[in-house]
């Protein structure tokens, strides 16, 4: 995203500041700022006609994950089950979290909820959310008088 270069006589600090600010607001446009408790972590890829969200949730049963979309909000809900301790077993280390999770993600546009697809592989949940037809950007041609 960052462009390197622009050194020389044409370099303009004000312009550079504006560009940085634009890139920065671009990064967060339409999305919630990161909040304190966010599990599972997500990466969001935005395209013209759909949004792809990937999320790291290793070791969950896909049946324990509940996804729903309303307008431009995605809700992820689920449970990461605790590793059961057998007879006579004791923990040495416990770093992997478990329990219920719930989070909502603001999408950049309205989504056609009937076409949302999700699959789970290698502990990564991948959700494809196609943009709603009515919400798609239309190109408007400018006519000359």
């Amino acid at each position: 995203m960052a462009r390197i270069g622009r050194i020389g006589w044409s370099w303009d600090p004000i312009q550079e500041m504006e560009r940085l600010e634009r890139d920065w607001s671009d990064l967060f446009s339409g999305f919630n700022r990161p909040s304190a408790a966010k599990y599972p972590p997500v990466n969001v890829f935005t395209g013209e006609d759909d949004v792809v969200i990937t999320s790291e949730i290793p070791g969950v049963n896909p049946e324990d994950v509940d996804l729903s979309v309303t307008g431009d909000v995605l809700t992820m809900k689920g449970t990461r089950r605790q590793q059961e301790l057998g007879e006579g077993q004791a923990w040495h280390r416990r770093e992997r979290g478990y329990g219920d999770f719930y989070r909502t993600i603001q999408l950049p546009y309205n989504v056609d909820s009937s076409k949302v697809e999700a699959n789970y592989s290698k502990g990564i949940l991948r959700i494809t959310l196609p943009r709603a037809e009515v919400d798609k950007a239309r190109k408007i041609s400018v006519k000359t008088a």
Binding site: P58, G59, Q83, E87, Q89, A90, R96, K122, G123
Partner: peptide, 17 residues
């Protein structure tokens, strides 16, 4: 997560992806 019992050690590691 690492657990131990008399039979041995069991280790679980999260390696998503």
């Amino acid at each position: 997560d690492i657990s131990e019992d008399r039979e041995g050690l069991t280790l679980y590691a999260d390696l998503p992806g």
